[in-house]
């Protein structure tokens, strides 16, 4: 793990069920190490939620091989946080589902809706095994 104070976390972790919580704790610790005005607790909550969703998708849906790893990069600077998560899986076709509104009585399918509502920008790679989530720290919460 590399940690340049205040702005950069880069990790490669085994795709285990505990990975999202581990990385979320690391991000919260990094955010807390900043000046108190860096971001408020509501934005920190939004960023942790986005991070967990990206990691859940990578760990639980994108990592089926034993020994699989997940790459995660978090950059926090210039009034925004960028979260990049990539898995080693075959990806998925995100195009038909990215803007789908989940019916309130459906138990599943809210991860992408959370991306849309809590991130200012959502981008997948062509293959669908990497996602970039951008959150402005002074943006409307949620967006």
């Amino acid at each position: 793990m590399t940690h340049t104070p205040g702005c950069y976390l880069r990790m490669r972790l085994p795709a285990t069920p505990g990975a999202p919580s581990l990385i979320a704790s690391a991000m919260q610790a990094a955010l807390r190490s900043q000046a108190a005005s860096f971001c408020d607790s509501h934005v920190a909550f939004a960023c942790e939620l986005l991070l967990r969703e990206a990691l859940n998708n990578a760990v639980f849906h994108g990592s089926h091989n034993e020994g699989a790893t997940v790459d995660c990069t978090i950059r926090a600077k210039r009034g925004r946080i960028l979260i990049l998560v990539q898995d080693e899986g075959s990806g998925f076709d995100w195009r038909p589902v990215l803007h789908r509104e989940t019916h309130p009585s459906e138990p599943g399918g809210r991860g992408l809706e959370i991306y849309r509502k809590y991130a200012n920008l959502v981008r997948f790679n062509e293959k669908g095994n990497a996602v970039a989530l951008l959150r402005h720290l002074n943006g409307i919460s949620p967006v």
């Binding site: 939620l49 967990r52 969703e53 009585s105 138990p107 599943g108």
Partner: peptide, 16 residues
């Protein structure tokens, strides 16, 4: 302190 999409799904399944 935190509920993610799988936790929301769990609550909705219980509600149903």
């Amino acid at each position: 302190r935190m509920i993610d999409s799988s936790g929301l799904g769990l609550l909705i399944a219980a509600h149903n």
